[in-house]
Simulated assay, not measured.
Amino acid sequence: MGGTTGGARRGRAAVVAVSVALAGTAGAGVVYAGPFDGRSEVTAAAVPGSEAEAERRVVSVLEGLLPEGEVREAPGDGGGAAPGAYAKGAVVLDDGEGPALVSVALGRTDSPALDLVALAGCPDGPGGVGRWGPKGTCTERVLPDGSGLLLVQDRVAPYGERDAEVWSARLIRPDGSMLTATELNAPAAEGAAPTRAVPPLSQERLAELVTAGEWRTLLDSFPRRGGGEVEPGAPSGFALLDTLEPLLPQGMRRFGRAGGTDPAHFARLQVDDGKGEAAVEVTVDHRGTNDTEEPRVEERNGPAPWSGDGVLHRSVTVTRPGGFRVTVTAYNTSRPLLAGPTRSTPPLSPEQLREIAGSGTWDRFR
Rank of each mutant, 00 (worst) to 15 (best):
P336Y: 05
E277M: 12
W167V: 08
E70I: 11
S50K: 08
A357R: 00
P232C: 02
G260K: 01
G256H: 10
E204D: 15
E51H: 07
A239L: 07
G259L: 06
A28D: 14
A105N: 08
L348E: 04
N290E: 00
L240V: 06
A44L: 02
L201C: 14
L201W: 13
T292R: 03
E53D: 14
V156Q: 07
L119W: 15
V280Y: 04
R257F: 06
F238A: 07
T345H: 03
A212S: 15
P246R: 04
P249G: 07
P336D: 03
A188N: 05
A169T: 06
V142E: 15
T182I: 14
E229C: 01
T345I: 08
A278N: 05
S307L: 11
E63I: 15
F36E: 14
G288I: 00
E294S: 09
L218G: 06
A278H: 05
F365L: 01
A330R: 02
T139D: 15
R9Y: 07
P126Q: 08
P67R: 08
V47Y: 00
E351L: 04
A357I: 01
V316T: 11
E41S: 11
A157V: 13
T43K: 07
T345N: 05
F222M: 05
P144A: 10
G79A: 02
L149I: 08
P263W: 00
D77L: 05
A193E: 15
S40T: 13
A207F: 12
A118E: 15
T5L: 12
E294Q: 00
